[in-house]
């Protein structure tokens, strides 16, 4: 009888322990939202919009920024071999003086850790050639050129002081060939137990002072000229970087 009681206690304890483990495991793998924070920067510092605070990378003139927008798309996250592909992943990062940082919340991410994240600056060819509304794509928004050309991938607008005058700066970069695919691997996987967001720096100055140094007085606008657009695309490939916090 005593032996039977002991067996019962062991059996019940085992069951309870198993339930706790299963519950905890289930909790840890249950899809949870993941917040991505994109912080607009200029030369590694938070952007000051609407003031002539920046020097032309290829000259000496001062310029200001009014609007800075970037389409990112096709976000994929990985925890080792497990890969999560975000559906309808088209996100417009909008920065201006009232929004120096922009949050993207991915609703259901079933990963315990994040060891790798990939995304594109720009939009895949199929979506760029479509007028379908999905994600943040909207053919009636300010990023749409028109249905023949598709979307602007990166938009920077502002003004530069030249010879006592204030001149416009307009950089609208699109075209399928200018999509840039980014892939970031964490040195240490980010544990999601504390619902930590992932933070990224988006440095506007890298658009003008990367592999190609841009003199804004010589290149005040980039729109339809494909070689000019390619120059900026080469630079903006380095514009977004994760801040892993480790």
């Amino acid at each position: 009888m005593k032996r039977l009681n002991r067996l019962s206690i062991v059996a019940v304890s085992t069951l309870v322990l198993a339930a706790i483990i299963v519950f905890a495991f289930d909790f840890r793998t249950k899809p949870r939202p993941l917040k991505l924070i994109f912080v607009a920067e200029a030369n590694g510092e938070p952007i000051e919009f609407d003031t002539f605070a920046y020097t032309n990378p290829g000259g000496t003139e001062m310029f200001r920024l009014r609007d800075f927008r970037v389409y990112i798309s096709n976000i994929k996250l990985a925890d080792g071999d497990k890969v999560h592909v975000v559906e309808n992943s088209y996100h417009l990062l909008r920065f201006d003086r009232s929004t120096p940082q922009f949050n993207v919340v991915l609703p259901k991410v079933p990963l315990r850790q994040i060891s790798r994240i990939s995304m594109s600056i720009g939009i895949d060819e199929a979506a760029n050639g479509s007028i379908e509304v999905r994600g943040d794509l909207d053919p009636n928004n300010r990023m749409a050129w028109n249905w023949n050309i598709g979307y602007k991938f990166v938009l920077v607008e502002g003004a530069i002081q030249m010879d006592g005058a204030v001149m416009p700066l307009v950089y609208h970069v699109g075209f399928n060939e200018n999509r840039r695919d980014l892939d970031f691997v964490a040195s240490t996987s980010v544990d999601r137990d504390e619902n930590r967001p992932l933070t990224f720096s988006v440095d506007v100055m890298k658009l003008f002072s990367g592999e190609e140094v841009i003199n804004m007085t010589e290149l005040q606008t980039v729109k339809m000229d494909r070689s000019d657009a390619a120059l900026l695309a080469t630079n903006y490939a380095q514009m977004i970087n994760p801040i892993w916090g480790d």
Binding site: N146, H172, K223, M224, D225, D228
Partner: peptide, 8 residues
């Protein structure tokens, strides 16, 4: 539908 661009 077009923003002018004299360059092109």
């Amino acid at each position: 539908m077009a923003h002018p661009d004299v360059k092109v």
